[in-house]
């Protein structure tokens, strides 16, 4: 994560990438559905393309599930970052008050805030770690998606006169997968992976 951004801004960027991937996963699902219908329409020559399109829809659903899980974790991250923000503010206020008072209570209260900050730091790291696990699975899923998109293009070549329509569809698949991979890379960086 870039240190110049505030923690909440970092979480927002992360969520923007999640939204991008979820939108693409939805598009792939629609493309897949359309491709299955096309393959049915074109009959025997496009049967292989139809099978591959079914696989692409399964890929998009799995990807969407990973994004939902990461999105839920990012909500927890907003909570953790907000609490850290509040604790830091309280800590700074206690520190100010400490300079004007001799009571023991203020340093003790400040220590408690530091302890809570440590706990929250641990929660933050755990959340990132859980996100990285989902991202790793999503990445593998995507590599599989790349292979399927390539296979779709090969199958399109066997589809004779209907080939150009199917080639266009397979290129759209490949583009979607490339965009997802780029967004996954950004997410990986943002989660410290």
């Amino acid at each position: 994560m870039q240190s110049t951004q505030t923690p909440l801004r970092q979480v927002v960027n992360l969520r923007e990438n999640i939204k991008t991937i979820s939108t693409i996963a939805f598009q792939v699902n629609l493309l897949g559905l359309n491709a299955i219908l096309l393959a049915k329409q074109f009959g025997e020559v496009a049967r292989g393309f139809g099978v591959i399109s079914t696989e692409l829809r399964a890929f998009s659903r799995e990807l969407a599930q990973h994004m939902e899980a990461i999105s839920a974790l990012s909500v927890n991250l907003v909570r953790v970052e907000t609490q850290r923000l509040c604790l830091r503010k309280r800590h700074a206020l206690l520190q100010q008050a400490e300079g004007r008072s001799t009571t023991d209570w203020l340093p003790q209260a400040r220590q408690r805030q530091l302890g809570r900050l440590d706990t929250l730091h641990g929660e933050r790291e755990q959340t990132f770690s859980a996100m990285r696990e989902h991202l790793s699975d999503a990445y593998q899923n995507c590599l599989f998606g790349t292979v399927i998109a390539r296979s779709a293009r090969i199958e399109a070549a066997y589809a004779g006169a209907q080939g150009s329509t199917l080639t266009d569809t397979s290129l759209a698949f490949a583009q979607c997968v490339d965009h997802v991979l780029a967004s996954l890379d950004r997410l990986k960086q943002a989660t410290g992976g």
């Binding site: 969520r15 990012s74 907000t82 509040c86």
Partner: peptide, 19 residues
């Protein structure tokens, strides 16, 4: 309120960039 900020912020960021 302060306590519900994380829930509001997360919901806002579902539909727009809170910036």
């Amino acid at each position: 309120g302060l306590e519900i900020f994380p829930a509001v912020f997360s919901a806002v960021s579902e539909v727009i960039d809170p910036a």
